[in-house]
Amino acid sequence: MAGVAVSTTINGDSVEYLCQPDETLLDVLRDRLGLTGAKEGCGTGDCGACSVILDDRLVCSCLVLGAEAEGRRIETVEGMAHGDKLHPLQQKFLEHAALQCGICTPGFLIAAKDLLAKNPDPTEEEIRFGLAGNLCRCTGYDKIVRAVQDAAHVMKGA
């Protein structure tokens, strides 16, 4: 099979790659580019562990083809921190122990970042529905919701 040549932007950097026409963006990120922060929990768009932001829109990268990234802008968890300074969401997830096993954490961080970009002052209910596309099996979501509330508070003050 001939590869598809793709030029795209990932976390602000220009990136070029070849991928197969049937290859997902998640597979490209993980297997071709070594960006393994996005996880495959289901491969069917049900768990949100592979969440990335594609041109300001939250998507499951397992439901996007690698070839579709041509000319787009992709944000992954690897791009959230600035140097050694964590994003407020990352910091609050740590402080609130909003992760146990941590496999869902990159997806939650990306989904929460997208949520707060669109709604900087969400209610608990808006957070709960905003993150309903991401599965966590460890925490019962309590500490995740609190971390996002706290991060929103900090980010408003910033």
Binding site: T36, T76, A81, L94, A97, L99, T105
Partner: peptide
């Protein structure tokens, strides 16, 4: 006490390596 876990930063930055990573 309730300090931050030692494996925490790797897990919020995507650096932690799981089975498929």
């Amino acid at each position: 006490t309730r300090p931050i876990r030692p494996d925490g930063v790797d897990k919020v930055t995507g650096r932690a390596r799981y089975g498929a990573d």
